[in-house]
């Protein structure tokens, strides 16, 4: 058992040394792999970062009810009472025209805006939270509310959020597809690397077989070589992604601020990093195993 572990440690170390000793050749294939892996990783982080935010937007659909500018207090009271008694309205809040203008000033830093205007151009509004998230019922409710007296329009706020949500969903599917395709690429590239390694070590393999080496003894260094390649490629991809996220975040924050939102790309969580490294390592070993099964059988001593 001790020797078994020792052999594994020995193979692991020798394989790593082998990769590090030919930095140029290894670096090229490592970089190729890591760039390929970084692509779905960045997409994944983009999807993950925006989707909680988008989800929050669509989870609480709201209908904005804008009154005619000429609406009187009596009209407001009438709408208020029909909203209060409507079974499909969960809650509602009133945003008066003065309040709306003050909010606009505050949020966008337009202090003194009110003083520059002759009259308040904003309408009175109600923000209605429906009792149901069901899209068809929401639509019916929107139509019904827009038919109330002195109501200018009823806007469904979640429409654009729905569209955004759909786009994020699409990107998520794309990420899955890219991840699968590039995972396959990782298997194939490692398969090829290990095939070359096996052919380059033909003499050693033949002699080892003559001396009584078992297949697993011969295979072991190649599997470790692949494992290191997969793990290192995963780590470099992680580094690339982290760098990209860090350098893109100021721009993302600035962009989100324009829409009064807080949004930034998050880095990979430790558990996600671990899972990714494990996945790249295993995929690489799968490629090596396939190559070894095929090519080691062809090298028989004569």
């Amino acid at each position: 058992m001790k020797h078994f572990l020792y052999l594994h440690a020995l193979s692991a170390r020798q394989a790593l040394v082998k990769i590090l000793r030919q930095p140029f050749g290894s670096l090229l294939s490592l970089l190729m792999l890591s760039v390929a892996l970084a692509l779905p990783l960045v997409l994944y982080l983009g999807v993950e970062s925006t989707q909680t935010w988008v989800g929050k937007l669509t989870a609480t659909p709201q209908i904005s009810l804008f009154m005619e500018l000429s609406a009187e207090d009596a009209d407001l009271a009438a709408v208020k009472s029909s909203l209060a008694s409507h079974p499909k309205v969960k809650s509602f809040s009133f945003v008066g025209k003065a309040e709306a203008l003050a909010g606009l000033e505050r949020r966008n830093g337009l202090d003194g805006l009110a003083e520059g205007l002759d009259s308040n151009p904003l309408p009175d509004a109600f923000v209605v939270t429906p009792a149901t998230p069901e899209p068809r019922e929401l639509e019916m409710l929107q139509k019904e509310l827009s038919g109330l007296p002195m109501v200018e329009s009823a806007q469904f706020d979640a429409n654009w959020a729905k569209r955004l949500f759909g786009m994020v969903e699409l990107t998520r599917h794309l990420t899955l597809f890219l991840g699968a395709a590039l995972g396959l690429a990782l298997v194939l590239v490692t398969h090829n690397t290990i095939r070359m390694q096996i052919l380059a070590h033909r003499d050693e393999i033949e002699v080892s077989k003559l001396i009584g080496a078992t297949d697993s003894f011969i295979r072991r260094p190649f599997l470790y070589h692949a494992l290191w390649q997969g793990v290192l490629a995963g780590l470099i991809a992680w580094g690339l992604t982290s760098w990209l996220v860090a350098s893109a975040n100021p721009a993302v924050r600035e962009f989100a601020r324009l829409y009064n939102e807080q949004l930034e790309l998050r880095p990979l969580a430790p558990l996600e990093l671990l899972a990714m490294i494990a996945a790249t390592g295993l995929l690489a070993m799968l490629g090596a195993r396939l190559a070894a099964n095929h090519h080691l059988r062809q090298i028989e001593p004569r």
Binding site: D203, V207, G212, A213, T214
Partner: peptide, 29 residues
């Protein structure tokens, strides 16, 4: 392999591994 581990083979063409020193060649078995 387990039968071969009890056999020592000496070849006419030596079949030495030239990529490693003498010591490592003998260490292999």
């Amino acid at each position: 392999p387990y039968v071969r581990q009890h056999i020592g083979l000496v070849f006419q063409d030596h079949k030495i591994l030239f990529d490693r020193p003498v010591f490592d060649n003998v260490m292999l078995p």
